[in-house]
Design a protein around this nucleic acid. Structure first.
Lengths: 215, 215
DNA sequence: ATGCAACATTGCAGGCTGTGCAATAATTGA
DNA sequence: TCAATTATTGCACAGCCTGCAATGTTGCAT
């Protein structure tokens, strides 16, 4: 990951094509409904051949769903593993996710179109979550490292460590989903950034036990 | 929901056909890999026409993924809402899920075949999660009721209540996923029931949240 | 039992999806 | 400028999935 080299013409074109396709499919799906849009039309609008469409995306829905988040740079991860910024696992995870959301460099227009479509076609949302398996696995590892750092006892049992890392990760993704839908359900005019909604969801998660059951 | 009437011939046949299709697709997919199985073959093995296959399932993968869990009867839900069995939100949720898993009346053979396929084709697992939207919404409502019961203050703000209900639900589904994969990853010979793995995951989750809330 | 209404199954036609392959075109780096 | 690499495209084709109309089956009231 680290620093992005200045990409050559080839790479720039690739990115442009990718964006053109995504933009086309979002536009068309919003206009006339996902089920009435064919790959042929999308390709026409995006100015590529239908065959090329499939070189970029395996399906219509994949083009809409959006790419899985790029992972953060090592520095941010190392900070998290070491117990920053607050020393509280859940809140720190929230911060990490919020940062990741900020780094997703997509223009606001695209984001909003996707948001609408996710509202209209819930299965797209599910698809996106499904596409995060990689992210999920990487995150599990990172969380595991953090847990080992927090609790040397746990570090001595690699299996328990992995299992717990995975549990924390899956739970965190639940909170992330909550944030996503909260953000998506907000009024159209709302300008609250996704990152802060994420932080909020994680903060609430932390408080769940306090209010609900004093055991 | 309540008590199941004795189903008539029509209904019994329907169920039989459904099972036949599911069994056929599982068998074939295990044998030669999901991508080398066609609907035509499945139908031949299940002894229905290809058209009938699509009357039962919208796709090959849907037939494999398995149905969303039926919801529990009102009695069990009311008990949960009232604060049973332990008065601890997370653990009680775990019990609820464990019960639901027990009630899923599928023969062990089917369960194991699915387990293997979920291991081999992770996107099937994702598909299953995606198919749980209904369950998700219902559960959110139930959790909301429980929360209102636990915390009258919260009950006075319906929006906050709904949001929190959804958060708890999504997080719980994360724990459920954890349980599922733990169970699926276990040795083939293992006979630990899914229900107890579920309870275990939720207990761990509680530990995590408690720790987070302490700081 | 009979007949009718409701529902299930099937075949068929047809559009759309998604992939392998081989030809062509564009970009890169020496 | 030239050769290697990589991207785009057209074509052919298997398979997915749906609508529709015909044909069986089951349920139910008489």
């Amino acid at each position: 990951m680290s620093i992005a080299e200045a990409p050559g013409l080839r790479e720039r074109k690739r990115i442009a094509t990718r964006k053109a396709i995504q933009h086309a499919v979002l536009q068309l799906a919003l206009d006339r409904g996902l089920e009435h849009v064919t790959v042929e039309e999308i390709s026409r609008v995006a100015d590529v051949s239908p065959r090329t469409f499939f070189n970029y995306f395996v399906s219509k829905e994949a083009a809409i769903a959006g790419d899985a988040p790029d992972f953060l740079d090592e520095v941010a991860l190392d900070r998290f593993v070491a117990g920053a910024p607050e020393g509280n696992l859940i809140r720190d995870l929230g911060s990490l996710m919020a940062e990741a959301a900020d780094h997703a460099s997509e223009d606001r227009e695209t984001l909003i179109m996707r948001k609408d479509l996710h509202n209209r076609y819930p299965h797209l949302f599910a698809l996106r979550m499904a596409g995060m398996r990689n992210f999920e696995d990487e995150l599990s590892g990172v969380v595991g490292r953090r847990l080992a750092n927090d609790d040397p006892d746990l570090a001595r049992d690699p299996e328990a460590l992995a299992s717990r890392g995975r549990l924390v990760t899956l739970v965190a993704l639940g909170a992330l989903r909550h944030a996503w839908t909260s953000w998506a359900d907000a009024d159209k005019g709302s300008t609250v950034p996704l990152a802060s909604v994420i932080r909020d969801s994680f903060a609430q998660l932390e408080g769940i036990l306090v209010q609900a059951g004093r055991v």
